[in-house]
C-alpha cells in the first residue's frame, strides 16, 4: 500500500531523512517512534507530498507520489491525514468541516455528504456537536472531529502525525480509542506517536527512527521486550523510565 525507497530529505544544513526504506501493507497498522528530530514526521509528510523529498521514491497504492504526471489532488483524496494541531477550519461548523471536501472533491450532494458526516460523528462519539464551531470543543473533541473529517473522504490510508501530543492527558484516551476502533476495522494506518501503550496494543509493527534513519523495526511484543539495537534500547529506557 505504501512503499518508500531510499528516501532523502534535507532542510538547509539538516539531513532529515538519510535513505529511508520501508513499506506498509494493506490493513497494516504501523507506529513510528523516535526522538524529536529523528525524521519521523518528515517521513509521514512525504507520503502525501506535504514534503517533497530530495531523493528516493514513494509509491502509494501503485502511484508514484512525486512523479510529475501524478495528480496530487487525486492521490490525496485517498490519504487521510490527522495533524498534531487538529487544523480544523474555524469559520465552519463541525458538520461543514466534514462535508467540505466530500462535496467539493468527491462531488457528493449535500444530503449524502451530511448523512455520511453524521454517521462518522456518531462513530467518533460526538454526534451532538455537529452544529458547534471547532473552537467550542475541547482538544480531544477537536481531534476526533479531525479524524472524522479525514474519514469522510473514505480514504484507503490514514496518516496520524503525533495525534495526541497537543492534548491534555485526560483527553488522550478518547482519541486513542477512536484510533483503535479504526485499526480494528482494518484501516491501513501510519501513526507517528509517543504513545507506547497504543503501539504495544494496536500496532502490527513498530518502526524506530533516529537521526533520519530507520534503526529497527519489529512486531511490538518483540520490539519492546527484545530490542536488538543499542540505540533502541537507550531510547526505550529514557521513555519508559521517566
Amino acid at each position: 500500500m505504501i512503499e518508500v525507497r531510499d528516501l532523502h530529505k534535507r532542510f538547509g544544513g539538516l539531513e532529515a531523512l538519510r535513505g529511508v526504506t520501508m513499506h506498509i501493507e494493506r490493513g497494516e497498522v504501523v507506529v513510528v517512534i523516535g526522538p524529536s528530530g529523528s525524521g519521523k514526521s518528515t517521513l509521514l509528510r512525504c507520503v502525501n507530498r506535504l514534503e517533497t523529498p530530495d531523493g528516493g521514491e514513494v509509491i502509494v497504492d501503485g502511484r508514484s507520489v512525486n512523479d510529475r504526471h501524478t495528480d496530487v489532488n487525486a492521490l490525496r483524496k485517498d490519504i487521510g491525514v490527522v495533524f498534531q494541531s487538529f487544523n480544523l477550519f474555524p469559520h465552519l461548523t463541525v458538520l461543514r468541516n466534514l462535508t467540505l471536501a466530500p462535496m467539493r472533491v468527491r462531488k457528493l450532494d449535500r444530503a449524502t455528504a451530511e448523512e455520511r458526516a453524521r454517521k462518522l460523528l456518531v462513530k467518533v462519539g460526538i454526534p451532538e456537536k455537529a452544529e458547534a464551531r471547532p473552537t467550542q470543543l475541547s482538544g480531544g473533541q477537536q481531534q476526533r472531529v479531525a479524524i472524522a473529517r479525514a474519514l469522510c473522504m473514505e480514504p484507503k490510508i490514514m496518516l496520524f502525525d503525533e495525534p495526541t501530543s497537543a492534548l491534555d492527558p485526560e483527553m488522550i484516551k478518547e482519541v486513542l480509542d477512536v484510533m483503535k476502533a479504526l485499526a480494528k476495522d482494518g484501516m491501513t494506518m501510519m501513526v507517528v506517536s509517543h504513545e507506547m501503550g497504543f503501539a504495544r496494543e494496536v500496532a502490527d509493527r513498530v518502526i524506530f527512527m533516529d537521526q533520519g534513519e530507520i534503526v529497527e523495526q519489529a512486531r511490538p511484543e518483540r520490539f519492546f521486550q527484545h530490542p536488538e539495537q543499542e540505540r533502541t534500547k537507550r531510547f526505550l529506557q529514557t521513555i519508559l523510565h521517566h
Binding site: 502525501n48 506535504l50 489532488n73 487525486a74 490525496r76 483524496k77 490519504i79 487521510g80 491525514v81 495533524f83 487544523n87 480544523l88 477550519f89 467540505l100 471536501a101 467539493r104 472533491v105 473529517r149 479525514a150 473522504m153
Partner: peptide, 9 residues
C-alpha cells in the same frame, strides 16, 4: 495544509 490534504486544489 489541512485543506490540501483533503484533496482540495
Amino acid at each position: 495544509e489541512a485543506a490540501r490534504s483533503l484533496g482540495l486544489s
